[in-house]
Design a protein around this nucleic acid. Sequence first.
DNA 1: CGGGGCCTTGAACGTCGTCAAGCGATGTGG
DNA 2: CCACATCGCTTGACGACGTTCAAGGCCCCG
Lengths: 235, 235
Amino acid sequence: MDAHLFLKTHRTPVLSEEERTAFIGSFVRTLDFGPREMMVREGVPVTQCTLVTKGLVQRFKDARDGKRQILALHVPGDFVDLHSYPLKRLEHSVSALTQVAAIVMPHPQVRALTKLSATLTELMWRSTMIDAAINREWLLNIGTRDAAQRIGHLFCEMYIRLERVGLATDHVLALPLTQTDLGDATALTAVHVNRMLRQLREDGLADFKAGVVTILDWERLRRFAEFDPGYLFLE
Amino acid sequence: MDAHLFLKTHRTPVLSEEERTAFIGSFVRTLDFGPREMMVREGVPVTQCTLVTKGLVQRFKDARDGKRQILALHVPGDFVDLHSYPLKRLEHSVSALTQVAAIVMPHPQVRALTKLSATLTELMWRSTMIDAAINREWLLNIGTRDAAQRIGHLFCEMYIRLERVGLATDHVLALPLTQTDLGDATALTAVHVNRMLRQLREDGLADFKAGVVTILDWERLRRFAEFDPGYLFLE
DNA sequence: CGGGGCCTTGAACGTCGTCAAGCGATGTGG
DNA sequence: CCACATCGCTTGACGACGTTCAAGGCCCCG
């Protein structure tokens, strides 16, 4: 199955040809989801892991009085729930944002891979820890930066991640979110997101229209939003 | 070495006697840190993992203009940097809050354990994923709850975690943080933390004085702060 | 006795949320 | 084919939650 995007974006630790083959051979089938379709529901026992091959996915948690927090966004090449292997259930939900294609690795196969190779173990574990590092950066983003910076930071992160898998170039990226979604990711209201988008545009930093971000001045946006990609562990 | 608190708090997956022995035998020495002493500095290559046996530890990131975000607090029985095994460096810093005692497992020993047993792999991986689940709950906490709720939620979480390792009973817990620290954990200023603490006290929910939290009405505080311990994976 | 943390409180301010209204695009059913 | 509902976007007015600035308190320690 088509797991090459995962292997392409995770270059360390280095796998042997045998390990690559075993990894790729551990996926058992493909799945498709429509836009906004639920993929994993909070609390339900999970017995397999899902690797996105096409489309955009969100992980989120609902709070009281209609509030919602997006915890993570996933691009092709990302596992959306590899952490379900050690945890057995998720404490949040996962849903598609766009039309999504994915491939599935059942937990027993994950376990078999960890038995087969300590390097494969390290690789899969590492992938979940990079997700956690992104969670922590979002904590910093929401906790310490103002509204416009938060949105700018999200744009920078998503550009780097999409560019990495060949889905963005020239500082233009498809980010098929509503302004409400942007607010749920940055802990702002849709109204205020709208105002901040206008400000980013007027300041010549970034433009967001119909789910497409155009970064007008990468270097200035990067500095403005205090974006440093170290936490993405691209090495 | 004294790793029994870790094994006590992580009851799944279940280890064989042989696995327990191997795990405990993989620690090589003890370390001590004074209050506020730096344990791991951001970005520096890490070659070992640290398990706290005594004291309280914080993980944090510094932002511009003196802002700081505490990303996690660790109690005895927690690894503070097990994620350094797959990541090789940390994108945040770790420091002691109190006098701290810890034991050390070098990365080669971690790798050896993952080779030895898929169950040990799952256990250690799981432990890092619970940390990540806590990160995500903090994201929800800061992103969707108001000031008093955030502080109340932190009190609830720390009570459960400390109670679990025998360091808190009767809804009283030692939480040796300044009000500035509480603010750095909840994305509030020290001034506002002070006001919210007064409110929590006047509302009969919780009292914080000199680093000691007294939860005055557990059930009401739990509901007020929307605290649900599912994300701690205590099972 | 002086200095420095940490805590406490008040007053003024500002960022962001809330409420409300109107717009355009899309889709559906009468 | 048009009426009408829905959804997302946009903007304005107002208000509130939390920040900033400032001052004074206590306590520990040099």
